[in-house]
Structure formats: C-alpha cells, structure tokens
Design a protein around this nucleic acid. Structure first.
Lengths: 107, 107
DNA sequence: TCAGCTAGTAAGTAAAAACTTACGGTAAGT
DNA sequence: ACTTACCGTAAGTTTTTACTTACTAGCTGA
C-alpha cells in the first residue's frame, strides 16, 4: 500500500522527534540550537532530523558552518492529503457498516 | 503539549498495526479473523488492537465468544482535526518564515 | 456440567530504535 | 596554516517494542 503514510507516522511517533518538529514549526533553527531545547545530545537531534527529512517533513539549508532546518511545506501538504484520504475512507467504511454494528447478524 | 497526536501517530507507526487498521477500514472483524490475514500470532494482533483502541482509533464489541473490532469514527474524526491543526499551523509558520529561509537572521 | 470455541493477559525472548561517545570533515576567523 | 565552531556519521550500548508460547477466563451448544 502507500508506504508514505507509514514513514510519515513513524516520523512523528517518537516524542522527542515530535517535539523537534514542533520547535521547527515556530521558526527555522540550527541543529545545535535545537539540541539545547531537549535533554538529548546533538547527534541524537541530527539523527531525528534525518528521519524527519526522509519523511519529507523538514528540509535543510547550509548557512556557513551551521545547518538550518525548517518545515517542508510540500511534504507537510502531501502527508496531510494522504491522511485526509485515509480518514475519509475510514469514516466512509464506518457508515457503510453502521447497521452491522448494532445488529451483527449479517456477516 | 497535546499527547493525543503522539499516541495517534504511534498507533499507526508500526506496519502490522497500520495494516490491521487498514483491514478494519474495509469491514468490522473479529480478532481471529484478523490474525489469519497477517503473519503474526493471534495474541500479537490482540496487543496491536489494544494500542489502536488506546489511541481511540478502533472500538470493540462482544459478539458471543468473539470480539468484533471496528474503526471508531469519533476517535478518527478527532485525530483528523488535531492533525489538521498541526498541518495548518506548520504551513502558517512556514509562510511567516519564508523570507528568513533565503536570508536568515543571526542568533 | 462438560467440551469446544473464543480472546485477553503474563512472562519471556528477539528485534528494533533511541541514545551515547568518538571521530572526521567542512566552513569561517585570526 | 592554524584554530575554533558546527555538524554528520560510525560504533557500541541501553532501552523499547514487537513477538512468541503458555495460561486463564468467558460464552455457547451438546
């Protein structure tokens, strides 16, 4: 099926990674800057950023010796669309099976 | 922050769990029924269903000796709303920082 | 009640993932 | 060129989590 949703959900599943994404939601930030916000080492932040980048949720840009990360609007929009499809699909399936829920005789 | 998003994303992060949710999207199903669809044991499916239930994505109903699981429309709708807030927030933040992307201010 | 299904829980194991320190490589300042 | 600052990667460790095999309990029909 669509492995994109998989990767996107995995990226936001970890608390630290979710918080990092939350911090980038406020403003673009460098790696070392982000590392000061959480009780993990800088390499750990780097690794989380790689996961987020692979999921298409963030992107990076070199600025001198620093590397600035920011939310990637295209990746975010895409994941949003895919999830919307999932939800509406799930809700449609629920409506289709609504009567079976109360009266389960027909399977 | 909102731990609900966290739990929701965690619930869909695992491939097997995501597939189980996908199967329930088609129609409500019993635990043993679901277990035949995937190369894992029935208790494993039970445990996945517990995670999905804690996330509010599915609900269950007793039917004789069996237990029927189905997508929970309320939980799905709620997670959908929360995610929508997250996305629009992230996209708004991007627009606000769009010019900083090319010419970032010093920190 | 007994036999048979069902499914959740417990306990332990195996696999995965998050984290650490150490290292190497690039960019900017002196 | 040397030094300093920033960051990614490698290697190894710790912690989580997904999974298995028992075991227990509830429901149904004979």
């Amino acid at each position: 099926m669509d492995a994109y949703l998989q990767v996107g959900c995995e990226a936001l599943a970890d608390p630290t990674r979710f918080a990092i994404f939350g911090a980038l939601r406020e403003r673009p930030q460098a790696v070392g800057e982000l590392a000061t916000l959480f009780p993990v080492s800088r390499p750990a932040v780097s690794q989380h950023l790689r996961v987020l980048k692979n999921a298409g949720l963030v992107r990076d840009r070199k600025a001198g010796t620093r590397r600035i990360y920011a939310v990637d609007p295209e990746g975010v929009a895409r994941l949003r669309r895919e999830l919307d499809l999932l939800w509406s699909d799930a809700l449609a399936a629920f409506k289709a099976a609504a009567e079976q829920w109360e009266e389960p005789h027909a399977v």
